[in-house]
Write a protein that binds this DNA or RNA. Structure first.
Lengths: 288, 288
DNA sequence: ACAAAAGTGTTCCAAGTACACCCATGT
DNA sequence: ACATGGGTGTACTTGGAACACTTTTGT
């Protein structure tokens, strides 16, 4: 990408303020999986999915919880800015991340026009600081489907309850999808939300992305500890997918994703279980 | 999302210029499928995938071809701005679109820091103005795979040749992917490109998105005319996927995606073929 | 007649589904 | 003894892959 002489001349004269500019933030939906406490010595702990939120110290949305983010730095790459932000604000390093979507609705920030380039972060670390882990309780309502001759319209209520100790944050969304011949509209509407900005929409987007990627990637291992039993892995899938899986089939399907170790769990009140680790050489599509 | 009194007070005093702002564009990769000419009265025309590019009249990258885009308007939604831009610059209306990715590399625009919120647009219209349709000739090199104990590194050269009449634009990318335990890096590097900015990267991203979505959506019908034969549909899949499909299997697999019409092709030098249209009520996941 | 596309049928194989069943452990 | 998770086997179903074969048209 060589720059022509004419371009060089132009650039010397160029003023970068001729177009209005928006503010831009990078925002991170930080997710992890943890064990629910259990009092039964036999029972294995169930897993729960959590998101890390910060209580906002300044307006707008002072005292509301929000996902981690910052205004971008023009001298850094977007992802770099996001990483620095996450490291400095909550102390998280070395994590899996991917860009999700850029949210830019006109009214999403009461201050001014602000675009949010959002990221999903997955971790198995717990010791973050500055905020709180919130349990995610996702409740997909029944889908309402209306069919016409040349298409359909679907609508579903989605409830997301975020809980950390006594703090319970309720959020309700409506996910709409309409299809009429070639026309096609998808929309997520926030009915009510106890967290800042449109962040519940971003969280919802991340949860969907994660769920979809479980099927065809090995993304889940970013949420696992290094060593785990297959039942732990199965529970993890179940929590994210929101459905129960059959044990025998699960073991076969995931066989290529994991490597068996010569270690076993003990002291569990039931038969010991073999430990596994992620098979980093699992390929599939990458080999094509 | 009520605004508290404290927030209101804050907003009155708020100055939106405390953070540096980037310029932001919306950019559209406009794709269509057309028939290659054929001189054999028996042979059906093959399909080819095309992208619509504009010749830049002003620096930077004057006289280079670029995808359609504009600096955003702070008073409009992002998608709205993109739609208005596409309509006014090339005369395209009523199309399928989806947001792709936000490109923001520091050096991607020689003028200043510019983020590009990119979209993929699919159409079956031909009569655009102001630019040219370029045939897309995508050439995936062989993948080079290097395996270690705890991961692997893959690298592949991708050549994209864009042709419109005598204009031939060559572009070469290297797609890298590295995995070491939990660490994971993916990167696309532009080796050389005959088009403006990093637009070849955006086009490449769109082509991949389209290819992936063929599998699990009915997105392809946005590229088809209203009525088509199953062989036309199969050719369309083949061109985008870059591989041949088996006819008998294809017919079975796509059966639920289409509705048969009581019309048949004629004058083709071979057996007439039934025409089909998209089944707009094809659902699958949406029913869950 | 014949080249090309249109369309159907069949066999084989891989993978997913749903169970039934036995094993090993700590209390 | 027993509740619980760990783990294997199997019969059935579904769908994709590969290929053979027939039909129909315009020139």
């Amino acid at each position: 990408m060589e720059i022509s002489d004419e371009d060089k001349k132009f650039l010397e004269l160029y003023s970068d303020s001729i177009y209005e500019k928006p503010s831009v933030t990078v925002d991170a939906v930080i997710l992890r999986l943890v064990d629910k406490e259990t009092n039964n010595y036999r029972k294995l702990p169930e897993k729960k999915l959590q998101v890390y939120l910060l209580n906002r110290k300044y307006p707008p949305f002072k005292d509301k919880f929000a996902i981690v983010g910052t205004f971008i730095d023009l001298n850094n790459e977007l992802a770099k800015t996001m990483k620095l932000c996450v490291e400095s604000k909550v102390g998280l390093e070395n994590f899996y991340y991917e860009q999700l979507y850029t949210f830019g609705e006109k009214q999403r920030d009461p201050r001014t026009r602000v675009l949010s380039v959002s990221y999903m972060l997955l971790t198995n670390q717990s010791k973050l600081h500055g905020g709180e882990w919130f349990d995610i309780d996702l409740n997909n309502g029944k889908i309402k489907l209306e069919s016409f001759e040349n298409g359909y319209r679907s609508e579903r209520e989605v409830g997301i309850i975020l809980t950390s100790g006594d703090t319970v944050l309720k959020n309700n969304l409506i996910v709409k999808s309409e299809k009429k011949g070639i026309e096609r509209v998808s929309e997520v509407e926030v009915v009510n939300s106890d967290i800042a900005f449109d962040h519940i929409k971003i969280i919802c987007y991340a949860l969907n992305r994660l769920k979809n990627k479980l099927e065809y990637t090995d993304i889940i291992f970013n949420l696992m500890k290094e060593k785990f039993t297959l039942t732990e892995l199965k529970n993890s899938y179940e929590v994210i997918l929101g459905e129960r899986l059959l044990d025998a089939n699960f073991r076969r399907k995931t066989a290529s994703l994991v490597l068996p170790l010569n270690e076993y769990t003990q002291d569990k009140g039931h038969r010991p279980s073999q430990l596994f680790k992620h098979n980093p050489n699992w390929n599939k599509d990458n080999l094509i």
